[in-house]
Design a protein around this nucleic acid. Structure first.
Length: 275
DNA sequence: ACAAATACCTGTAAGC
DNA sequence: TGCTTACAGGTATTTG
């Protein structure tokens, strides 16, 4: 469930709490969460006893760098949470993986829908093979604006384009709608019809929405499924202008926010000021 | 190349 | 009070 802003919030807190600490033990109780490993014991054995040397992010994927050179890659899927816990704390329902640290709190992976997963892998020349298909980061890549411009020659509709992780990473259903509203562009607009001026606006909207969302520690919706490491909800949902606001007035032009369903997914936009 | 539907799961809310 | 249905931020794969 976390998109870029939520993953980035988790990454920063993970780094602050756990980098430098050694993983004392790993307990896997949910086999599906480590499904890339044939044997969950192999995952645990490769991680146990290693010191965490860094906490990174590639799109919505979190990367926990180990002193062995291995990297634990984690994706929250729709419902995954990484939570700090005291060793004595009761183990919550749907807890699939537990890490105990020397001189630090436990880290627990809780994921009811089990779309999330984690695995350990060895990067080759700094590249994680399983993440090699991912596109550019809208905030981290210094050439992000130019790369976005290059994508605009395609006939693809803007929303699926923004959400395509092989082109741009980190943007999901929610932030795609918010970014397109901020840019004043309809989600079904073919990218190839977007002018240079509009592309500039799209780029700046992408940056400003994502940066603001990170400042507010991400978005938690009505179900409050997104939680940070400490179990706290985000604050950016307060600033949402179209997402999950069907039937309400657009804060910019007053027209009624519309929802259309396609591909089993909801698209929210304002028919008044997005063109 | 692109668009839409489906599969993978569980939990919750809404409707009857 | 049940029971059924729709829906939920993710990715990957299949079908048209």
């Amino acid at each position: 469930m976390p998109e870029l802003a939520e993953a980035e919030t988790i990454r920063r807190d993970l780094g602050a709490i756990y980098v430098g600490l050694t993983i004392a033990s790993v307990t896997v109780t949910g086999l599906r969460s480590v499904r890339r490993h044939e044997d969950p014991a192999e995952f645990a054995a490769r991680v146990r006893g290693r010191r965490l040397s860094g906490a990174g992010r590639r799109g919505k994927y979190l990367t926990l760098e180990l002193d062995s050179g291995d990297v634990v890659v984690a994706h929250m899927g729709m419902s995954g949470q990484l939570l700090v816990a005291a060793p004595a704390d009761e183990v919550a329902r749907h807890t699939h993986v537990r890490f105990a640290f020397d001189g630090g709190p436990d880290l627990r992976f809780v994921d009811p829908r089990t779309f999330g997963q984690m695995w350990v892998t060895q990067p080759v020349g700094g590249t994680i093979a399983e993440l090699a298909h991912l596109g550019f980061d809208p905030l981290e890549d210094p050439d992000a604006e130019k790369r976005l411009e290059m994508l605009m020659s395609r006939p693809t509709k803007l929303k699926p384009l923004l959400m395509d992780q092989s082109r741009i990473v980190g943007i999901g259903n929610m932030y795609a709608d918010e970014i397109l509203h901020a840019a004043g562009l309809r989600p079904d607009r073919p990218a190839s019809t977007v002018s240079a001026t509009e592309t500039g606006r799209l780029y700046r909207s992408m940056v400003s929405v994502l940066e603001a969302a990170i400042r507010e520690r991400g978005s938690s919706l009505a179900d409050e499924q997104y939680r940070d490491l400490f179990g706290r909800i985000g604050r950016y949902q307060v600033y949402h202008r179209v997402y999950a606001r069907e039937g309400r007035p657009c804060p910019r032009c007053g027209a009624t926010v519309t929802r259309v369903r396609t591909g089993g997914r909801s698209w929210y936009f304002c028919p008044g000021c997005q063109e």
